[in-house]
Amino acid sequence: MGEFTTTIEFRLDQAYKGLAEARSAGDDFLADTLTAEIEDLRRIADDNGITLPRQMSR
Rank of each mutant, 00 (worst) to 15 (best):
E39F: 03
S57F: 11
K17D: 09
I38A: 03
I44F: 15
T7I: 08
I8L: 11
N48T: 06
K17A: 12
I44D: 14
Y16G: 10
M1D: 10
L52K: 02
D28M: 12
Y16T: 14
F29D: 13
G2K: 07
S57P: 02
D27R: 10
T5N: 13
S24D: 09
Q55L: 09
F4P: 02
I38H: 01
A22K: 01
E39N: 13
L19D: 03
R43E: 15
N48D: 03
R11H: 12
T5I: 12
R42N: 02
G26F: 08
P53E: 11
A15M: 08
T51K: 02
D28F: 10
R43N: 14
D13S: 15
S57Y: 14
A36S: 09
S57K: 09
D28G: 14
G49D: 02
I44W: 12
D32S: 12
D28V: 15
F4A: 12
M1I: 05
G18W: 10
S57E: 11
D27F: 03
G2R: 11
D46H: 09
R23K: 15
M1H: 09
E3V: 05
F29E: 11
E21H: 04
E37V: 14
S24K: 15
R58W: 07
A45V: 00
T6P: 01
T7P: 00
R54A: 15
R42W: 00
R43A: 15
E9M: 12
D46Y: 12
I8S: 01
L30M: 13
T6D: 15
F10K: 14
D46G: 12
L12M: 05
D28T: 07
A31C: 05
A25W: 05
I50Q: 13
D32Q: 01
G26A: 02
E9S: 09
L34V: 03
A45P: 00
R58P: 13
N48C: 03
Q55F: 05
R43G: 09
T33N: 04
D13P: 05
L52S: 01
P53L: 15
S24W: 09
R11E: 13
L34P: 08
S57A: 07
I8E: 05
Q14N: 03
D40Y: 01
M1P: 09
E37R: 08
E37S: 12
T51Y: 00
K17M: 06
T51N: 03
R43W: 12
D28H: 06
A20F: 04
F10E: 15
A15Q: 06
L34Y: 08
K17Q: 10
D47V: 01
Q14F: 07
Q55I: 11
D40E: 14
T35R: 13
M1N: 06
T33G: 02
E21Y: 11
I38F: 02
T35A: 08
T51W: 00
E3R: 14
D47M: 04
A45C: 01
D47Q: 06
A20E: 08
T6I: 11
G49S: 03
G49R: 07
A15T: 14
L19G: 10
